[in-house]
Write a protein that binds this DNA or RNA. Structure first.
Lengths: 225, 225
DNA sequence: TAGATTGTTAATCGATTAACAATC
DNA sequence: TAGATTGTTAATCGATTAACAATC
């Protein structure tokens, strides 16, 4: 039912709404107004109402929003109930940590299989998911309808493996390698989790704060002379 | 030297610039124009020149930008040369993966120590970083000037540990727990790495694409009748 | 010198905020 | 009914893009 084009900013806020609504639901809150929700998320009530109204009318005048119903609407907008299938490629440290820790099913995904090149790892099973050999990947993709590939291979392997995935016609890649995967002629969606980008942004903000503090201290020292 | 307030959007683009410039440098490219760089990053030349001009004049008319010099400017703006010190809290799967795989020093950070509650893990050493007991944390923070805490504890521990860090006056938290840490009265910076938010955004885009394809197919089927 | 490309000012576009009639 | 709060239209704000004089 999503006809109109919804902006990126709105879409990036949806998972936060979902998280907060889950939390509210868990703590027994039955309804919430846009201004209350806004307070809890650091957003204006206007923005929240605008965001939701991109997708429909989920509230009720004089009442607000039903937490459980709104939660389910947003979950559905995000595609949680579509039963997307994923595979994971590269069972190294981060790949294994994801298999072990990350609850794919909580977000509506089913992790179908993992792939690795190392014969020591091939054949092992983690949380019910078995690791197959990379050799089997092309065939596996042909015979199974996979929506998302989780890419957790080493840097060097990122581009060739991504190309293999593009050519297999995979819909999307969830990219944990710190490599820019934007292949111009590919139609696969790419979502990046760049740890270093995140840390560097933080580094900037910390630097900025230290500079401000130093400037304030310097002003103070001058005025005390 | 950063006086004027620079927008969030700009700051989030800086690490991408850095990554691309590193790549260009590695492949022997000495200079680049804003339009060429824009093409490679999917940005307009105007935007790139605007972004850089927030921080100074790094280019030269008729020539463009010197790749190595620009790279160093951006690295410095991001605070890479400030020698920030980090500790990691929670040596589970993801914490251990970070210790093992993530090259803190590449981004100017030094990982000084790790902390965990499990006696089995306390005392172990990974990549030269030893794991201390959580009991030692308050004391450690008092006697060592730490800038950033990497938070990789289980969900349940996130809020109490974060509170301990706030109270110790830590500057920033790099948060890998899927918990909203926004403590209103705290002045610590928080940078979130929310895997699930990232996956859910991707889930939305995949859903959107499937819907579009289905709509196109339906139109086609109708017109063929 | 002529061509290229910057830094910056102005114009456009899009996103956020404010306001308010509708209505539960 | 009166009060609260929505959904939406209009106003504002900020970010991106375009244009161009300056200059290497």
């Amino acid at each position: 039912m999503k006809r109109i084009k919804v902006s990126n900013n709105v879409i990036r806020r949806l998972p936060r709404y979902l998280r907060k609504l889950d939390e509210l639901k868990a703590s027994g809150v039955g309804r919430i107004s846009s201004s209350n929700l806004g307070q809890q998320l650091g957003l204006t009530p206007s923005q929240i109402r605008q965001d939701f109204s991109s997708f429909g009318e989920f509230g009720q005048q004089g009442y607000g929003y039903n937490v459980a119903a709104l939660r389910d609407e947003i979950a559905s907008i995000l595609g949680i109930d579509r039963g997307f299938k994923a595979i994971l490629i590269g069972v190294g440290n981060i790949g294994h940590a994801l298999m072990d820790n990350f609850c794919f099913s909580e977000w509506g995904f089913s992790l179908e299989a993992a792939f690795d090149i190392d014969p020591e790892i091939v054949g092992t099973v983690t949380k019910g998911v078995s690791v197959k050999s990379m050799d089997e990947l092309p065939d596996y993709l042909r015979t199974n309808k996979i929506d998302v590939a989780v890419l957790t291979v080493p840097k060097e392997a990122a581009v060739p493996v991504a190309r293999l995935l593009y050519n297999s016609g995979i819909s999307a890649i969830w990219n944990f390698t710190n490599v820019e995967l934007t292949e111009p002629n590919s139609s696969s969606l790419v979502e990046n989790v760049h740890f270093s980008d995140s840390l560097l942004s933080l580094s900037y903000y910390v630097s900025e704060r230290y500079d401000e503090e130093a400037a304030r201290a310097a002003r103070l020292a001058r005025s005390e002379k």
